[in-house]
Write a protein that binds this DNA or RNA. Sequence first.
DNA 1: CCAATAATTCAACACTCCTTGAAATATCTT
DNA 2: AAGATATTTCAAGGAGTGTTGAATTATTGG
Lengths: 191, 191
Amino acid sequence: MGDTRGSILRAAIHQFAESGLQQTSLRSIAREAGVDPALILHYFGSKRGLFLALVRQKLDEVLAGLLGDVPPTKDIGDLLVARFLALWDGDRRLFAALFRTAMSDESLASLLRTELLAELVRRVAATHSTEAERRAALALSQLMGMAVGRYVLGIEPLASADPEEVAADVGPTLTRYLLRPLPPPARPGGR
Amino acid sequence: MGDTRGSILRAAIHQFAESGLQQTSLRSIAREAGVDPALILHYFGSKRGLFLALVRQKLDEVLAGLLGDVPPTKDIGDLLVARFLALWDGDRRLFAALFRTAMSDESLASLLRTELLAELVRRVAATHSTEAERRAALALSQLMGMAVGRYVLGIEPLASADPEEVAADVGPTLTRYLLRPLPPPARPGGR
DNA sequence: CCAATAATTCAACACTCCTTGAAATATCTT
DNA sequence: AAGATATTTCAAGGAGTGTTGAATTATTGG
């Protein structure tokens, strides 16, 4: 099995999920992969390069799993929340680690904005030509807050609730942000 | 001015706000405070001890500023959001750094749960004897999501919007979580 | 003024880290 | 089989870390 590069990636996923980007050392990844640390640099250029390779891969999964084939429905919020939870529940530790890193690393945050958020804006704009950015930002922040509470901070009963229950609670908020009338925006220059 | 301890704390706040807990070194704090690194340990025991001293102090400010003297009102959500934003807007970098750390550090996360969340639960329970935990968790996650979007990831237009506008958008969600009827909880053991 | 206590510094230990450049080993091509 | 190429290891550089314990300076109290 000449898949050394693959086994490095696997070890990296495992370690990053366990301890995050900063805490994980190339040495410990190399140890788990049964490989010399220098080899990782040979393949990925740098620790950051390894991490980014990982992120790109997962981001595609997220985009497909979250925004792929969204049927038109009145309960769009419930659907999005359910998909979001299904994704994240499938690999809690890894996603939590990725999310934490995105919050500490401007270049990752920027990736989130330009890929995930932008795609969401595009979908929203398809039904609402105006205020798509505002709606998408609000929806995304509720999604992220739910994730923080459930997966990162472990706030009960949110952390242990069944996905369906969470979707029933949070979904309507998303639906409102995405489809319902919003308060009139502040007039620029008004007081 | 024999306030060396105070100037260490000030330097620490500045540096932690700028770079976070891990990235900031005792040596650089000592440099800014014009002091030997060992002196910090003398006063605070450890790097973590210094950070915790800081957190305790700020947490009290937050609790007072957020949950102190809440008048009974129908628009409780707008009020909470406005207060939350006023607090955080007053020191964006520091709060963002504290929040990031809370997400990576279980003992800080636990502090958030046992202090901020618990206090919120107590307030909610005053008007809703049942489901206070569920309501508080939902409200807190929307607050945190708003914070992540606005301050940490910098999602537009949320990041640059006037506080009043954000309060008008997000407040009703909080009010709903806190005061309005929620979907019936899943029956335990049901399917 | 001198002893006791507090404040502060010095120097060093013991790690760990990412990264580098050259050396060794394996694989492939012809 | 031999030369070329890719893969992998070795050893070490060089910097930075938190922390410790003793030594030094300043401050206070009798």
